[in-house]
């Protein structure tokens, strides 16, 4: 990463920390949404960008964790840490089970299978009405500040909590992709046969990558449940998964920074545009097409000659 980009990142970080002092609570809320979805987009980047496994069902793992929090907090009145812990465990377990099915599959096959599994989980949230509330979703999730018993409350407080979670998750993922494990993942992405002949258990690496990715998706899911106070099947559907996919590819896969930018661009675009028009999908569809035509390697990779 060049000095120019590093400066850019530091400036961005300072801006993000200072934001609540200058912006209205509406924009602070939007930034919170960006931060949560950025965690989710980064988690997909570990899988898609670094391991080369294109998942089109990633939003469903996020959704499973969010539903776990929603169910436990509203129907069973569990306390805060139980909910957080359960959300993370359930989401990670779900990815561990799904990972068993998909980890030996590659390329477009992986794409189709994760898509199908994502749709199955969406279908479950939609049809399993006694548990998930069906189309109406589950509402009434307490705010994080109240539920955790924090001495402060409000959008700004939640924003800073989200920033801390974001920083921790981002730091962990950066360390992960730079570790020997992360380098092995990139090796698998580039040439699995060679990695195999070097003695690496590539299946296990893909499987672990899927679980790690699922864990961070669950982190985002737990945050989302508290941010939104409400979960419904729309957060797991194919449109959600592919929006996520767009965040990563639009921002720049295998950079971790790119997906954060992508998340920012999509969330802001969506909210700004929906103020003017109800034809959001038309715009999103156009964004897909234009993005692929103009920046197939992503915005963050536009300036650089080598890819990470």
């Amino acid at each position: 990463m060049g000095a120019r980009r590093l400066t850019l990142l530091v400036v961005l970080a300072l801006l993000v920390i200072a934001a609540p002092f200058v912006l209205s609570s509406y924009w602070v809320g939007l930034l919170t949404e960006v931060a949560i979805l950025a965690i989710l987009a980064m988690s997909l980047d570990v899988l898609l960008g670094y391991t080369g496994l294109p998942s089109l069902g990633h939003a469903s793992l996020f959704g499973v964790a969010a539903y776990a929090v929603a169910l436990l907090s509203t129907r069973y009145g569990m306390n805060f840490w139980t909910c957080v812990f359960a959300g993370l465990v359930v989401g990670t377990l779900a990815s561990a089970v799904i990972g068993l099915i998909v980890s030996h599959v590659r390329d477009v096959y992986f794409l189709m299978i994760t898509l199908a599994i994502g749709m199955v989980l969406w279908g479950l949230s939609y049809r399993w009405i006694p548990v998930t509330g069906g189309d109406n979703g589950l509402s009434g999730i307490p705010s994080l500040e109240v539920h955790a018993g924090l001495p402060f409350a409000g959008p700004t407080a939640f924003y800073y909590v989200t920033l801390v979670v974001f920083a921790l998750s981002a730091g962990a993922m950066v360390l992960l992709v730079r570790s020997p494990f992360g380098l092995t993942l990139r090796g698998i992405r580039e040439n699995e046969g060679r990695m195999k002949s070097l003695g690496f258990n590539t299946w296990l690496h893909c499987y672990l990558s899927f679980i790690v990715s699922g864990f961070f998706a669950s982190v985002a899911g737990v945050m989302w449940a508290y941010y939104n106070g409400f979960v419904s099947p729309t957060y797991l559907d194919l449109t959600a998964s592919s929006e996520l996919f767009l965040m990563v590819t639009l921002g720049g896969p295998a950079t971790l920074v790119g997906p954060v930018l992508g998340a920012g661009m999509i969330v802001l675009l969506k909210n700004v545009m929906s103020a003017y028009t109800a034809r959001w999908l038309l715009i999103l569809g156009t964004v897909y097409i234009v993005a692929i035509l103009t920046a197939p390697k992503g915005v963050w990779n536009l300036g650089s000659r080598r890819s990470a």
Partner: peptide, 26 residues
């Protein structure tokens, strides 16, 4: 034009799917 890039092709068809969906509604 994206003959060798299945992911780009998939994204492209996704974009069209959204366009078709909203156009149909419209």
């Amino acid at each position: 034009r994206f003959g060798n890039d299945p992911l780009a092709q998939m994204m492209m068809t996704m974009g069209f799917a959204l366009l078709f969906r909203d156009a149909t509604l419209m």
